[in-house]
Nucleic acid binder design. Structure first.
Lengths: 196, 196, 196, 196
DNA sequence: GATGAATGAGTGTTCATTCAT
DNA sequence: TATGAATGAACACTCATTCAT
């Protein structure tokens, strides 16, 4: 059964983002999502294998789109520094633009089984690939040292961004997120230590 | 109800770590934890308010202990650099020493409700306080620039360490964790960029 | 709605025999039968009132045909003994010739509601009528005693044949059925007791 | 999990006989049975694996008891003829004494999956064993011919009795059942044919 | 007639929690 | 304190049936 797409697919995905952000995954009954989407309960199962599949598909859909867009932007002729900044900015902008999505992404999706993590990780791999590309290009042109452990660096970059977003969600979006891109990027590039 | 302590309290906590790490939180029935602990189902409720309380108490107990130990270590007369390295090393060592605890800490505990996050965050605050202390001391003695946004820095440090541990857990502990402390610490202090 | 006949009617009936024999009635979704028949789900409802109607119609169709054929054969000029043997042989032969039909007839059809039994019984009545005809003719010509309780006798004959077939189906058709006609017929006619 | 017995086990079994006889198996919701038994829904699952298990356990319980009783009676010093008659009489009497049980036994239990049939058959085997014992003893002492196919004979006897009971149930118990034992027994022993 | 996407009623089962002993 | 049998609320999912095309 290849995944069916169509108007209803998006209808359900968007309803799910809203309902899950408001109630949390475990209190978001399938019937509640169906009602919000304006379809019958059973219709959900024409487009999704089960309730968990909604959550993961939602992530794949939204995050996949984001990765696509980002990949495209990063083909531009920019310096490594500009590319990293751009990526961070896009990341923060995307989530600041959709608070519900941010809640689902930073909190609810992490409630999924270890097994489901593999599907999540597949999507994440796409994102991490973008970071890797920047890192490798930078090592190639001397912006980063040849000796850089790029896997560790990738984890540091992703972990830092992710934590910044999560912190913003936990603080209930009480401050602006995008302005943090620049200082965050600098901190990652030059470190915390005074450079004198 | 003040929290009751006693032999059984620890018995249950340790059983929970084992059972939850093996089965995941949602497949760890209270009766399964009780059986592993060698107590009756009902006994659990003499020591814990409900199932979620086991999970959070477990975190409070183990993490609280860790923060205590760390705080103590950090009173030693060390450079800022040494202190940060020590903290990271202790963090990685504690989790590498107990794989089950690492699984619960990095994966399962995140499945808790948004509400429960507040109790988790309270514990985390203790840990983040340690980072802050180092950061502020460093800013004070010129190791870090006065202009450092220490809240952002704290998020970067925590996010990076956390991601490194999570990655290790997701990769099923297939490599050694503690050796990553040194390069991780350096990366955080001097950044990714080449220092020509 | 008079019953519609046509190519598709038979297509569906035959698909149903196959699907139900293989999966059991309760695991034979209408859509599965439709697929096997090569028609759309909705088409089923142009020919049958509901799912149960397929099961009963199937029985009516196959059994009705069998009763017709048998009635015809029994008009021949035969002794009572020959007629009974012929009936039993035809019964066993019909089911041995179509294992799937035998499964449906002996096992699956009995899963229908008490209400539906009335339609089944109507069909059976035709068959039982054949037995009655033989019994009454035999009582008339002295082959059977005048005192015979022919209703009881009919139940004994039908019950015995039915059980022999069911046993064969339950034993997964591991032996030949038709050869049992002769000894079964003898047993019914002369009883189990030694005749000396 | 060995089967738990106890007061509640019987309570539930008896409630199930009543509810299933009145509503049919498929319209006998577990909650309905629980209510009739005066226990909570969940309690059912302390004593039975699932809904089907209630049906089969019920049969095992009631039929098993009957087979025990019959086996005991048949140790008496009786002629073969008397033994067969006794068995038939007990069979008819047991079911005439409990109309609800008869409905479940003759109609509802047959709605179970082919898989569940194996558990049913295991119970039936006990009953069929009783018939076999009589047949073999009769062949041994010359009451039955040495050449008797006792497996076929067993099927004829069981099929006949079963059909007589089913017929009585389908006719909604409108006549007395036990009086049919004698003529039924005779018919099985001496056959239908006139013994000129 | 034929289709098949959409419907939504219906229920078995789990398991955290309680409480009489 | 400790027990564990009993509770009962809660819900994902199926699938027979409909109907607009």
């Amino acid at each position: 059964m290849g995944k069916k797409r169509g108007q209803k697919f998006d209808l359900i995905i968007n309803a799910a983002v809203k309902v899950i952000a408001q109630n949390g995954y475990h209190h978001s009954q399938v019937s509640k999502i169906a009602k919000e989407a304006g379809v019958a309960d059973g219709t959900i199962y024409l487009y999704f294998k089960n309730k968990e599949d909604i959550l993961i598909s939602l992530f794949e859909e939204k995050m996949g789109l984001f990765v696509e867009k980002s990949k495209e932007q990063l083909t531009k002729d920019l310096t490594i520094e500009e590319k990293l900044l751009l990526l961070i900015e896009m990341h923060l902008r995307q989530l600041e633009a959709d608070h519900n999505l941010a809640i689902v992404t930073q909190l609810e999706i992490r409630q999924s089984n270890i097994q489901l993590r593999s599907r999540i990780n597949k999507v994440l791999k796409g994102y991490l690939g973008l970071i890797d590309t920047i890192l490798l290009e930078g090592m190639d042109n001397g912006f980063f040292p040849k000796s850089l452990d790029h896997r560790l660096a990738r984890q540091v970059i992703f972990g830092a961004i992710d934590e910044v977003v999560t912190n913003w969600v936990m603080k209930e979006h009480r401050y602006e997120l995008v302005p943090l891109a620049k200082p965050l990027c600098n901190m990652l590039l030059t470190g915390l230590k005074s450079n004198n």
